[in-house]
């Protein structure tokens, strides 16, 4: 509990870590689109080689990256099974049991769908969760959404709320730990008994936690006013992100990579999705 690190940010100082946050969001989006455009074995192979290169570039240990894959292993299996049995192929079925019939196309489609999901997870991990700090992410989202300000959408306020939430998550998690310990010292038992009993046991934790959260909100609001906060209007930023050559090159390369994948769809090697 003490050293909870928010999200999965894993600092290594790699090239990808140093890219502009907005660029990383754009790269992640291109990666997602590219994933959905892949249709042939050749393009899938290329996608995975490319993704693997990116993973290596982040310099994050493979074991850590695999941990995020492990979390979705069941989803992958279920996707695979559903796709495998619900695809109706043209040729002879491989086998047929009761209502289940398996075609060769089914296996290919299932493999491709599972690979797509895997690629989506790896892509967002590489560009966002592992390499972008939550605060960089909020700032980037605010910056990318800023055109919406013209439509009177409260983009700034939203970003401010997100950043305060990020700031206070560790504080409140420490406090939860402290209150739970204090109530345990008074004989509270959070681990045994029926579900209702356990839920009831949480009241002595939740009430003080809420009271304290409201007090914090009140004090924070006063402190912010005292520091001249008056909404997003007329506000400047200490760090105005500038895109550097590296950022532009990254977007260019990613686009080229996507285009290559689309071209590879034409290569009819072993199998192509229909």
């Amino acid at each position: 509990m003490k050293n909870i690190s928010l999200g999965q940010y894993y600092p290594t100082g790699s090239v990808i870590h140093r890219l502009d946050g907005r660029v990383k969001i754009i790269l992640a989006v291109i990666h997602i689109i590219a994933t959905f455009l892949c249709e042939s074995l050749a393009s899938f192979a290329c996608l995975f080689v490319g993704t693997l290169v990116l993973v290596l570039m982040t310099r994050i240990p493979l074991g850590v990256v695999l941990r995020s894959v492990r979390a979705i292993v069941y989803i992958l299996i279920i996707t695979f099974i559903l796709n495998a049995f619900f695809t109706v192929g043209e040729g002879e079925p491989l086998f047929s049991v009761w209502i289940f019939t398996l075609y060769i196309e089914g296996i290919w489609n299932a493999a491709f769908m599972a690979l797509r999901i895997l690629s989506l997870i790896l892509g967002t991990s590489i560009f966002i969760s592992y390499t972008t700090t939550p605060i960089q992410l909020t700032d980037s989202i605010e910056s990318l959404l800023s055109p919406l300000k013209k439509l009177k959408l409260p983009v700034h306020d939203f970003a401010m709320m997100m950043s305060i939430a990020l700031r206070f998550i560790p504080t409140i998690s420490d406090e939860t730990d402290r209150i739970m310990t204090a109530q345990k010292a008074r004989g509270a038992d959070f681990t045994t008994g029926s579900l209702i009993k356990r839920a009831k046991a949480l009241i002595p934790v939740l009430v003080p936690l809420f009271v304290s959260a409201f007090r914090r909100a009140d004090e924070l609001a006063t402190a912010m006013e005292c520091r001249c906060y008056h909404g997003g209007e007329g506000r400047t930023k200490m760090t105005v992100p500038h895109l550097c050559a590296r950022d532009i090159a990254a977007v260019g390369l990613m686009l080229a990579f996507g285009a290559a994948l689309v071209l590879l769809n034409r290569v009819d090697f072993l199998y192509k999705m229909v």
């Binding site: 700090t133 939550p134 605060i135 950043s163 305060i164 990020l166 700031r167 924070l220 402190a223 912010m224 520091r227 001249c228 906060y229 008056h230 506000r235 400047t236 930023k237 200490m238």
Partner: peptide, 15 residues
């Protein structure tokens, strides 16, 4: 208010 020390110090002047 901010998750990084220097960003927090910048909050007032930014406002």
């Amino acid at each position: 208010v901010a998750t990084i020390v220097e960003e927090d110090v910048a909050f007032g002047p930014e406002n």
